[in-house]
Design a protein around this nucleic acid. Structure first.
Lengths: 121, 121
DNA sequence: TCACTGATTAGAGATATGTCAAATCAGCAT
DNA sequence: ATGCTGATTTGACATATCTCTAATCAGTGA
């Protein structure tokens, strides 16, 4: 490991973000920068089968159906999830390539993060 | 926790985020979900020496000094950066541990990962 | 066709956010 | 002290966001 001065952590912190890259990333981040939408995304992504029914999601919150619908639309518009109707119900699933963009921007690609550890299982 | 069905990508998508975790993460994400603040964070992190003078930052934008100051405050309040005055100038630097939390949430621990697991310590 | 359930859209109201001009604070140097 | 430059705070304004109710759309089944 030659003595390259490693700044710190994320790609974002290794080279100045271009104006357009910043604008693009911000769209994704805005979509995700809300507790309800974070939980929705998380629930959809971790749901068995890789998709979740809106009916399941709505029940998990103290919010009205239209509000959940609104948040799902924000996530969908940002390209983070996609959904389709099957009969009476609508199912949503994550679009991994887009979610990964977030990870790529902030991924600590260097020495193990101070409070995280990669362990064999 | 052995051989759990790996859904797709980020930790966020592997298990439903708790309400408090979501709220906490959202604070960080809100701070970062703005093109100007993304670029500020990026410029600070990638600046030689690991820190950047406000004077340098201000010049890079078509915004007034108070506006830049406001954005820096948002980042600082979220705990992503810290700054101190040295004489006439104020210098900001990234707090890697906090920035890494973003990476940890969305890190695509995919391909080389079938038998690796991200565990908090 | 009509009623019923699940989901989205439309519209409204309260709150939050991004920006600026003006005022203020902090150091430095006449 | 006085003034000068760099940075922050304050106050205001326009816009965006989050939530709700009411209305509408989509499918199913009597």
């Amino acid at each position: 490991m030659a003595a390259v001065t490693i700044q710190c952590c994320a790609p974002i912190a290794r080279e100045p973000l271009s104006e357009t890259d910043a604008a693009e990333l911000a769209v994704l981040l805005k979509a995700v920068a809300d507790p309800v939408r974070l939980r929705l995304l998380s629930m959809i992504g971790s749901h068995a089968g890789g998709e979740a029914c809106v009916c399941d999601l709505t029940d998990a919150f103290d919010l009205t159906a239209p509000t959940i619908s609104h948040h799902l639309k924000v996530l969908r518009t940002a390209g983070l999830i996609d959904g389709d109707r099957r009969g009476t119900w609508v199912y949503y699933r994550i679009i991994p390539e887009v979610v990964n963009k977030l990870g790529a921007a902030f991924a600590p690609l260097t020495e193990p993060a101070p409070n995280l550890e990669l362990t064999p299982v």
